[in-house]
Amino acid sequence: MSKHDENCDCGCNEEYGFDVDSTVTLTLDDDTVVECAILTIFPVNNQDYIALLPLDEDGDNDDGEVFLYRYSEDENEEPQLTNIEDDDEYEMVADAFDELLDSQEFDEIDEE
């Protein structure tokens, strides 16, 4: 999985105003607190979604798990994450994220 940096073309820094090394702290349904790296925010059918990489206590992710949420901003431009409850919507978003990863990996290979 590619790491975002100042040269990535995803627009994460410019469009959404966070540093490419930004993290977010989530409290899961079972009250587990997880620090996650923000991978990207991407649109699917006029809705933005965010991909988060959960990190362990050392700041690593060894299992490759990614969390996907609906992304929006409130009237104060504060980020809002919403669970994706619908299985069909989740599959559509997961497929779009996979395609995004595939295109980034292809771009990296093409640049070599």
Results as ranks from 00 to 15, higher is better:
Met1Lys: 06
Ser2Leu: 10
Lys3Leu: 08
Asp5Cys: 05
Asp5Lys: 02
Glu6Asn: 08
Cys8Leu: 01
Cys8Glu: 08
Asp9Glu: 13
Cys10Gly: 08
Asn13His: 11
Phe18Tyr: 15
Asp19Ile: 07
Thr23Ser: 04
Thr25Asp: 01
Thr27Gly: 00
Leu28Gly: 01
Asp29Cys: 04
Asp29Val: 09
Asp30Tyr: 09
Asp30Asn: 15
Asp31Val: 09
Asp31Gly: 00
Asp31Arg: 11
Asp31Trp: 11
Thr32Gln: 14
Thr32Leu: 12
Val33Thr: 15
Val34Tyr: 07
Glu35Pro: 00
Cys36Met: 09
Ile38Thr: 11
Pro43His: 10
Val44Ser: 06
Asn45Leu: 04
Asn46Cys: 05
Asp48Arg: 04
Asp48Val: 02
Tyr49His: 09
Tyr49Met: 02
Tyr49Ile: 00
Ile50Glu: 02
Ile50Ser: 02
Ile50Leu: 00
Ala51His: 05
Leu53Phe: 03
Leu53Val: 08
Pro54Tyr: 05
Leu55His: 04
Leu55Gly: 01
Asp56Phe: 05
Asp58Pro: 05
Asp60Gln: 12
Asp60Lys: 12
Asp60Pro: 01
Asp60Phe: 05
Asn61Glu: 03
Asn61Thr: 00
Asp62Phe: 05
Asp63Phe: 09
Phe67Tyr: 15
Leu68Asn: 07
Leu68Tyr: 07
Tyr69Glu: 05
Tyr69Ala: 02
Tyr69Thr: 06
Arg70Ala: 07
Tyr71Leu: 03
Ser72His: 07
Glu73Thr: 15
Glu75Thr: 06
Asn76Met: 05
Asn76Glu: 06
Asn76Thr: 06
Glu77Trp: 11
Glu77Lys: 13
Glu77Phe: 10
Glu78Met: 03
Pro79Asp: 03
Pro79Trp: 06
Gln80Val: 15
Gln80Trp: 04
Leu81Pro: 01
Leu81Ala: 05
Asn83Leu: 07
Asn83Gly: 04
Ile84Arg: 04
Glu85Gln: 13
Glu85Lys: 11
Asp88Lys: 13
Glu89Tyr: 06
Glu89Trp: 06
Tyr90Ala: 09
Val93Ala: 01
Ala94Arg: 08
Ala94Gln: 10
Asp95Pro: 02
Ala96Gln: 14
Phe97Trp: 14
Phe97Val: 10
Glu99Val: 13
Ser103His: 10
Glu105Thr: 12
Phe106Val: 11
Asp107Ala: 15
Asp107Thr: 13
Ile109Glu: 15
Asp110Gly: 00
Asp110Pro: 03
